[in-house]
Structures are given as C-alpha cells and as structure tokens.
C-alpha cells in the first residue's frame, strides 16, 4: 500500500491505524453473495426496519471489485464453491468475510454430499454468525463486531508482527477433539472395579 507500510512501529503508526480503521468501518460495502434463506434476512437487514444504511452499508455492490465485505449468506453447494472462490479472489484487499448462518459456518443441517461443510474450507472467514436464518439483529451484531475488528486492525510493521504471532499460536493450537468443553472427562482409573 502506501505511507502506512513504511512507517515504523510507534505512536504515529497507531494513530494512522485508528484513522484508517475508522474510515474503513464507516463505509464498508458488502458484496451481494446472497444464496438462500439467509439472503432474504440479509435483504431484510437492508430494508427500512433494520436499516444498515445507518452504518454506511446499504450499497450492496454487485461487482466484487468494489466490495469490502463478502457476506456469504446461505448454503454453499459443491457447484457454487469455485464461484465463491472466484468472487473472493476478485475482491481487492482489504477484504473481510462473514459466514452468515449455520450453513455457511459449518454446513448447517445439511451434512451431506452436496453442501460444503463450512465456507472456511474455501475462503478465510473473519466472523461466523450462527442462526437458521439469523435474525437481522444478529446480523447487525456480527457486522458491528467486524467493525470493531476493523477499527483495531493493525497496519504495516504492526500487522507483520501480528501475523507472525498468530502463526505461532495456530501452529501450537490443539485440535477440537483434544479440547475440553462442557463434556466432563472420563476418569482414567475407574473409581469402582469388580475386581475389588
């Protein structure tokens, strides 16, 4: 990019990050990638009641070359996946992806041959929004969380440092199966044994 790539880490870069973040989140243009039921809720979010024009986002750009945010709204079938990737590639940087709905986040209720089990198999996702379909208020909440991400986005030298750090964290991260959630671990030794 420009000036911000060359600034050294410090107060000047942090101020530029704040201004750039504010400007970017203030007019984030979504790309029309409405596929199924979630697309209708996305359109309703753009409608008069749940107006996203107040966030500067009512211009759904049809051309991905003008768009910043790709809201993948709906189930992505195997046939649609290459198209999704092509549209993502055509978007210029900086770009963000919001997986709207359970079908885009993880395949949803359609755990079968025809649906890609989560668009993160195809494009890198910044925000997952569950729901079937998520209410417009939920979509606005997810969009505002992305706005916060954008506001705090680092540039230039800070961004490169953050990328290295994230890479280390990702390499060391445990797989989901190894994590402990609400499932209580079975004790390794049984508390009672028929052998006494």
């Amino acid at each position: 990019m420009g000036l911000e790539e060359k600034l050294p880490s410090g107060i000047l870069l942090t101020s530029v990050e704040k201004v750039a973040g504010y400007a970017r989140k203030g007019s984030l243009w979504p790309a029309t990638f409405g596929l199924a039921c979630c697309a209708i809720e996305m359109m309703a979010t753009g409608g008069p009641r749940y107006d996203i024009a107040r966030f500067g986002m009512e211009v759904f750009r049809a051309s991905p070359r003008h768009a910043d945010l790709m809201i993948v709204a709906g189930r992505v079938s195997q046939k649609m996946a290459p198209v999704l990737r092509q549209i993502y590639d055509q978007m210029p940087n900086p770009k963000w992806v919001l997986a709207m709905g359970v079908c885009a986040s993880s395949g949803g209720m359609f755990n079968n041959y025809a649906v890609v089990q989560g668009v993160d198999h195809v494009v890198p996702v910044d925000m997952y929004l569950p729901g079937c379909p998520p209410r417009p208020e939920m979509l606005i909440d997810a969009i505002l969380k992305i706005h916060d991400q954008i506001q705090d986005m680092k540039l230039g030298a800070n961004a490169r440092a953050e990328m290295l750090e994230n890479e280390q964290l990702a390499l060391a991260a445990p797989s989901i199966l190894d994590k402990e959630g609400l499932l209580r671990r079975r004790p390794r030794t049984p508390r009672w044994s028929p052998m006494g």
Partner: peptide, 25 residues
C-alpha cells in the same frame, strides 16, 4: 444447480416429522 442441497436424500435419514424441518427450507 448452484444451490443444490441434497435435501431429498437427507430426508431419507431422518424421521417423518424431522422431514418437515428440511422441507421447509
């Protein structure tokens, strides 16, 4: 075919009432 979801086949592995939740989409 860009939105083919395999709903009809998926219903063969769910009960009759669960079919309603598939069919509605």
């Amino acid at each position: 075919g860009y939105l083919h979801t395999g709903i009809e086949k998926n219903m063969e592995f769910r009960t009759w009432v669960q079919g309603v939740t598939f069919v509605t989409r």
